[in-house]
Amino acid sequence: MKTSNSEVSVQANAREARVKADRPAETKANNIFQLDGEDIPFRPGQTIMQAATHHGTYIPHLCWHPDFSAHGSCKLCTVKVNGRFGSSCTIAAQPGLDVENRTAELDDKRRTLLQMLFVEGNHFCPSCEKSGNCALQATAYELNMMSPHFDMFYPDRPVDASHPDILLDFNRCIMCALCVAASRDVDGKNIFYMGGRGLLGRRVHISSESGKLADTDFAVTDRAASICPVGVILPKRKGFAVPIGQRTYDLAPISKQVRDTTP
């Protein structure tokens, strides 16, 4: 997860090279759609998000991750496909689609969605270890979110410090369920699960009777330990390791760090 500046750009360059090299071989000429007027080639079976990401074009997203199947919950990736709204992380790419992405209309909606996520949780970035490396924050910067706009909910959500190596601060959870997918699909442990209903009820459950992480076989080496896009699942004793100015999104905006595989 931790990537320094130079690694990012090296990866970006490598990706560009690979995309260029791959393109003729893997995509047929007619497997192309339009994203904000740009030609995006795709392989059959790819979603709009996958194809755009592989191509190096940024579509805002939070709950989608290249290593996992789409969850489709955050709706940051909302685009207009042939004039109709839809989630680009779940819609299959098809030849000739006309997709709008970074229009003022869509970015306005995305900014409102971000504001919703900010007010429903407790996001005090100055005291959050994820600050500077946080996808929610970086996406909000990208979309020029200047304020939370809505009235704050200030919910009372738990912190779980029971585990020796990992801290869970659910005040920052955005319900993306990536931890659920990582623990289930990669770690084979099913430690996290999304439950509850509605605004107040919805939350991540921990698979133990006490509800505490310490009472599970969770390990700091689990994929789920490093998947959280925000500051919920944090390694202990590693706080604020990277100085301000050097953190992931200090170096370049999130839209300039499009990666289609995890580092």
Binding site: C74, K75, L113, M116, M175, R197, G198, L199
Partner: peptide, 16 residues
């Protein structure tokens, strides 16, 4: 607001 399943952002937060 009571019946939103809470899955997606616009409805979960918007209904409230």
């Amino acid at each position: 607001a009571h019946e939103s399943c809470g899955f997606c952002t616009p409805c979960r937060v918007g209904t409230t």
